[in-house]
Simulated assay, not measured.
Amino acid sequence: MKIEGRTFVVSGGASGLGQACVEEICRNGGNAAILDLNEENGNAVVNKLPSGTGKFFVCDVLDTESIAAAVKGTVEWAQQTGKPLGGVIPAAGVGNPATILDRDGNAFSMDSFDFVVNINLRGTIDLVRQCLVHIAKTEPVGPDNERGVVIMVASVAAFDGQKGQVSYAASKGAVAALTLPMARDLARYGIRCVTIAPGVFESRMTAVMPKKLFKGLESVMEFPKRAGQPEEFAHLARHVIENSMLNGAVIRLDGGLRMPSKI
């Protein structure tokens, strides 16, 4: 599917991996709806984009009504620009590490667990399902009669989560696991579903990591021995959009990283 002439919804689009996807889409003839809580950052991203290609919507992925308002605004904008919805990239996510039992044998808080899972998993599904209703009604394009694509964001923690990542690994593992059944559900509509599982990338989430931990993770990567750049994630997302044979797959983007138990 071509990016040109289509509108894509990106949550977490005001920073990190989401922002890089927004910029890649808009550089290649598409429009991007930037969903985020940070209005200042969102407007700053819009101002960096080619004129008229981006629009910011305040959105809390923990709130179904907030998502509904952002999706409604996006659909109206797409109608005004004549660029129908072509896909959704739910890139909003959080970490919040904690071991299930601490050193004193106390269990971690369910509020903490729910916070991570609700943003990373429930927020992903809620945004995707609300966008899909509209994507499924667009006119199919190309020889395959394609309507759109869902690109979800998991993590290598879905497969080799470290100590303290029970909540995070559970949320990202679920995203990876639902990729194939979602692709099967959407096949009748000509909509694909692919998940990217990044390793260590420079982002808002990794920016708060202790430097020792960050460098330790880099040291166990095979090649290249460095953190990924958001633009490299966005390049893969662009390829997923443009390559119609990519469907039902979870793609690791990690420089050969296999995370050890702890650093």
Rank of each mutant, 00 (worst) to 15 (best):
K2N: 12
R6I: 13
V9L: 13
G12Y: 05
G12M: 05
G12I: 06
G13D: 09
A14M: 06
S15N: 09
G16F: 15
L17N: 02
A20R: 05
C21Y: 12
E24Y: 14
I25C: 07
C26H: 00
R27A: 12
N28Y: 15
G29H: 02
N31W: 12
A33W: 07
A33G: 06
I34D: 03
I34P: 15
L37C: 06
G42Y: 09
V46R: 00
N47C: 01
K48G: 08
L49T: 03
G52E: 00
G54C: 04
F56N: 00
C59M: 10
C59A: 09
D60P: 10
D63T: 07
S66R: 05
I67K: 06
A69D: 12
V71I: 13
K72C: 09
K72E: 14
V75Y: 12
E76D: 14
A78N: 03
G82A: 06
K83F: 15
G87I: 08
I89R: 04
I89Y: 15
A91H: 08
G95T: 13
N96M: 04
I100N: 11
L101I: 05
D102A: 05
R103S: 08
G105W: 10
S112D: 15
D114Y: 15
D114E: 11
F115M: 08
F115R: 08
V117S: 13
N120P: 05
N120F: 03
L121E: 11
T124V: 03
R129P: 11
L132C: 04
V133A: 13
H134S: 03
I135G: 15
T138V: 14
E139P: 10
G142I: 04
P143Y: 14
E146D: 11
R147I: 15
R147K: 04
G148E: 03
V149P: 13
V149A: 00
V149G: 01
V150G: 00
M152P: 11
M152W: 12
V153N: 11
V153D: 10
V153I: 12
S155V: 02
S155G: 06
V156I: 07
A158Y: 05
D160R: 09
Q162R: 00
K163F: 10
K163P: 02
G164C: 05
Q165R: 04
V166L: 10
V166C: 14
S167A: 05
S167V: 08
K172D: 10
A174S: 02
A174I: 04
V175H: 04
A176T: 03
T179W: 00
L180E: 12
R184T: 10
L186S: 10
T206M: 07
V208N: 09
M209I: 03
P210R: 00
K212C: 14
L213G: 08
K215F: 13
G216P: 01
S219M: 01
V220I: 02
V220H: 00
E222I: 11
P224W: 00
G228A: 01
G228N: 03
G228E: 07
P230H: 10
E232V: 06
F233A: 03
F233K: 04
A234L: 05
A237K: 01
N243S: 06
M245W: 11
L246E: 13
G248R: 02
G248M: 02
A249R: 09
V250P: 11
I251D: 12
R252T: 02
L253G: 11
G256W: 01
R258P: 00
P260T: 09
P260W: 06
S261K: 08
I263D: 02
I263K: 02
